[in-house]
Amino acid sequence: MEFLQLTYNGLVLGSILALGAIGVTMIFGVLRFAHFAHGDLMTVGAYVALTFVHWLAWPIWLAALPAIAVTSILAVVLDQLFYRRLRRVAPVILLISSFATALMLRALVQIIWGPDNQVYATGISIPYRIAGLVITPDSLKVLGATALMVVVVHLFLAHTKMGKSMRAMSDNVDLARISGVPVKRVIFWTWVFAGALTAVAGILLGVDTRLIPTMGWNILLPIFAAAILGGVGRPYGAVLGGLIIGLAMNYSVLFMPSAYKLAVAFIIMIAVLILRPQGLLKGISL
């Protein structure tokens, strides 16, 4: 029974990781760099939603809309301010820049919203008990929202021209370029797309746990692990990778202290990098 509960909790965590990892993997695929500010972008999304929930008493699903807008715009602005100019110099410099961006975003969140724990809704919500399984209403929201987002992502990537262009660039930048894919516009929309997913992932993380300025940074490593496990540049792989990492992190408490959940994600990531660097769905070769 404990195993079943861990499976459920693992899927909830895995959903959040999956949404974060789709953004990371698309940025990696299109722009060829690991975006270290991704976790902190999640944090920003979560806190923007918090502002609308607290000030205007909006329900969380409605507050998600301005959060998505702000985070997407912020992602584009960061790209225009910092990353765009550095892309031409040396790709590896982008890593340092995104690391600096991560710390700046976190500092900004702390300055605006304060360093303390916050929650979207106070009070106790009564969990459902189904066949011994404890299911909180919040966790159902996480699963539902993730399912919805994955469907939206699928429709976008499979049926819109922009989505196809993104996948084409992720497959092979040069080939996409000579095939007439508008590279600049694709990069712009990749940030919008990743920013939107990141905001949702951040909000769901806030719904599932609570909001602190380090929330996104703390989950960055499992998100990278999920993206690498799924295959870099592969959005469907990122979903798969997210769920597997989420499950593995929860199952690990069966045989080791729960404090080391993060280490489990890390070990899986290292094992993948050594044994199957292209990931499950054959991502970009290294």
Partner: peptide, 10 residues
Amino acid sequence: SDYLAIATLG
């Protein structure tokens, strides 16, 4: 480099 950066951060 990207993977080394992630691994060392981890």
